[in-house]
Design a protein around this nucleic acid. Structure first.
Lengths: 341, 341
DNA sequence: CCGCGCTGCTAATGCGCATTATCGAGATCG
DNA sequence: CGATCTCGATAATGCGCATTAGCAGCGCGG
């Protein structure tokens, strides 16, 4: 179904130019050397034949013949283009698109991956993964097996977001939430807070662990109590009151919003240990982080390209795990202890 | 660079299962018939060998061997994933993603297409177009040559948005702006308006022409005067005053917003002859259309799939130009002539 | 016991491309 | 004037898969 009628091959070009298919290939790829010599006259003749026709190289054939295809795979563990996930994926996808554009690569989205147990599977009977030169993986949580297998097959890939769920070192580009969390806690201490409640879901992702670890390293003057929340936040006010916390932090901006609705106490400081762009609490800009997502995406593609174009033996020389620094966004919800600013 | 080490081929499977590569292929594709007979015992043996291994078919080879690849191309004449274009492309991309998912297809974004004269080129030296079974084209304006060539090469494709810039019939799925315009004008007439000013850019797109044509067929009681605007709207108030119009319509919601800022007259009715979701004018919901963009995308993919899976000779039996009906959104800016509602 | 049909499988081929190994013809040299 | 070298180009091969043609073996009827 490759549109038989309009299909022009190198053979056809060769016939027109009165040369062999080999010669056409040579001309197209600008090959030259001691063994391959084509005078400019012939080159020109072939070139004209190509320009007269509608020839385009068949990427499948190129690929089969062992060349790179300038195609990068994009795999998302959740639907990437839905309005809900745009908030998270949008900046990443934008960064990926721009990076791919400047690298001259096309992007293959693996939308066909069948959903099993609520999550997309990267490997399946008819995965088109191999069509890509390499692949970017996106998603809050990833499948350890997928990652293992990619490493085992030495297929070039880069995860977006820090990963530590496998034994083998997984290439990733992420944001240093640990450092950000530390800086935000420092700031809270400066503002006089001594007790903070940290709300989080029971998610076991690497970044969730990073945040918790950073919390464990909180400055001495600050006591941060982690608290796992479920869907029902109705008893949160009691928990806060009992803890004596003067600030409530949460894993992400949505959780802060939910908590704020229940708590309804403007003297309480609030912050999300995550991106807060576009989030407001009762008219006040939410405190938290600004994370360079486009930059993460760009860096991920750069790393991927590097992995692809470097022979596997030399991968030792590449820094395959990269954390980018974000910045603490001091919004209007993180205030002096007890004060209203 | 296809990850030599981890690559498992049918040959390898055949060796393990003690059969020929042909047999493996047959088992994988569930082929059976008078000429091809494989007892269940053998089938099972092959299947086990496959499951034990990490075999995945090489899509490039499949493609080269003449099969469909379940890959649909997505070509956008502008950057698709940037924040600015998300407003327009977002719903379309979402619809495309969902449709592709249910069709079991992957999506190939041609982000690599070089930009010439401000527009992306579909055809270029290394286009990966042919890797896809077919292609969806997105963009406000398209290149007539691209369309002609796709038709000429009988490459399956569908344009999103009505097209008429070529002689050959181009497959498209669009929104019936003509009908919508007609209905909105009827409504304006009912509300007592007799003179309307229609602001538009000097864009020569099919939908722009459709709107103008529908305006030409306005009900007798209503006189609609088209007016081409540039970037500077400062003399608009005079134009409106001189025309005696009691309502100002415009090509799109942004143009209405710009005009409203300049005109600043709440007794003037306003409407966009386009999607108005998310647009407000001075706190009032803007009147205009609600267009089923996800549906357009889904329909486009359905048509594309149909074109791909139907032999070209039978394309005559397919309705390749489809207009979907939107609905008029009667917002708060289209009011009784002279009244404030 | 010879042919015939059926079963179960495989060898051979081609898809379009890149690459390797040659090859014929003329130029150069000894 | 035969041996060698260079130039210009090509035939042959393989990539991994699907497909077509065909082959060996066996049972069965005549």
């Amino acid at each position: 179904m490759t549109g038989k009628p309009g299909k022009v091959t190198q053979r056809e070009i060769a016939r027109i130019a009165g040369v062999s298919q080999t010669t056409v290939s040579m001309v197209l790829n600008d090959r030259d050397g001691s063994n391959i010599r084509i005078p400019d006259a012939t080159r020109e003749r072939v070139r004209r034949a190509i320009e007269q026709s509608t020839y385009v190289a068949d990427p499948a054939a190129r690929r089969l013949a062992g060349l790179d295809n300038k195609i990068l795979g994009v795999f998302t563990y959740e639907s990437a283009l839905s309005p809900e996930s745009m908030d998270f994926y949008g900046p990443l996808l934008n960064g990926i698109e721009r990076a791919a554009e400047s690298l001259g690569c096309d992007l293959l989205f693996f939308t066909s991956s069948p959903v099993e147990e609520g999550r997309r599977r990267l490997f399946h009977r008819n995965t088109r993964l191999r069509l890509a030169d390499g692949c970017v993986l996106l998603g809050q949580q990833m499948d350890g097996e997928d990652l293992e297998r990619l490493v085992a097959e030495s297929f070039p890939f880069v995860a977006v977001g820090r990963r530590d769920e496998t034994d083998a070192p997984v290439p990733y580009v992420g944001i240093d939430y640990g450092a950000l969390t530390g800086r935000l806690l420092d700031r809270a201490a400066e503002l006089g807070h001594e007790k903070v409640l940290y709300l989080h879901r029971d998610l076991n992702s690497p970044t969730a662990r990073d945040r918790l670890a950073a919390i464990g390293r909180a400055p001495g003057a600050l006591a941060v109590a982690p608290f796992i929340v479920g869907d029902d936040l109705s008893d949160l006010p009691q928990v806060v009151a009992r803890s004596g916390a003067t600030a409530v932090f949460a894993e992400d901006a949505f959780l802060v919003e939910d908590a704020a609705l229940v708590l309804a106490d403007p003297s309480l400081s609030l912050a999300a240990l995550a991106e807060v762009r576009g989030h407001r609490i009762g008219g006040r800009t939410l405190s938290g982080f600004h994370t360079p997502r486009q930059q993460v995406a760009a860096e991920a593609l750069a790393l991927l390209q590097q992995l692809i174009s470097t022979p596997a033996e030399e991968h030792g020389g590449i820094e395959i795990q990269r954390l980018l620094q974000g910045e603490v966004a001091l919004g209007e919800t993180l205030i002096l202890r007890g004060g209203t600013r």
